[in-house]
Amino acid sequence: MIKSIMIVGVGGQGTLLASRLIANVLQNKGVDVKVSEVHGMSQRGGSVVTYVKYGEKVTSPVINRGEADIIIAFEQLEAARYVSYLKKGGKMIVSTQKIDPMPVITGNAFYPEEIIEKIKALGIDITAVDALESALQAGSAKASNVVLMGVLSKVMDAPIEAWMKAIEECVPAKFIDLNKKAFDLGKNI
C-alpha cells in the first residue's frame, strides 16, 4: 500500500523544506520513500508542487489526479487548483493565506471567493488553519511551512520525536527553536 502526500503552494513559501521534513521522518520508518520536487523557473513565484510517496515499493515519484491521500495547500488558490489530485476520501489541510497571482494583480482574472467552503461542499474532508498567524506568533512568517507540518503530524503515523529530529537535521541551527515552536503551534491547532 503506497501513501501519497502532496504539498502545493507558491514558489518561495518553503514547500521544499516541508517535503524534506516529511521525507526525513519517513526515512527512519524502514519503508521505501520517493520525493519529487520542482526547481528552476517555476519556483519564481509560480505554482509549485512537491510529491512524497512511501510504502513497500514506490515506483513513480509523482502523484496524478485522484491519487493523493493528503494534500497540504500553503495557499487557498493552490488548494483549489489541485483538488482533483485528491483521492476519494482523502484529506486536505489548507492554510487560509491568500496570495494574488499576477493575472489577478493586473486585473485580468479574479481570485475565487469562499474557496474553502466550496471545497467542503464537494464533500472533502478539509482542515483550514491560519498558519501565517501561528508562524508570526512563533517569530517569523517564513515558518508557516513548519506550522503546517505540525498540523500534518496529527494525521501521520510518526512519533513527535521523529519530527523534532527532522527539524534539527533540516533547519539551520539558529532557526531550530523557532521552528520547533511553530511545529508545536501547528500540532495544537
Binding site: 513565484g45 489526479r65 485522484g66 488558490l77 487548483r81 482533483s84 483521492k87 476519494k88 497571482p101 464537494l122
Partner: peptide, 20 residues
C-alpha cells in the same frame, strides 16, 4: 482505467512564475 476525483467548481486563475 481512470481514477475518480473531484474538481473545483470554478475556473482557477493561472499562477505563472514572475520576477521576484
Amino acid at each position: 482505467e481512470k481514477l475518480p476525483f473531484d474538481e473545483f467548481s470554478e475556473s482557477v486563475p493561472v499562477r505563472p512564475p514572475v520576477m521576484c
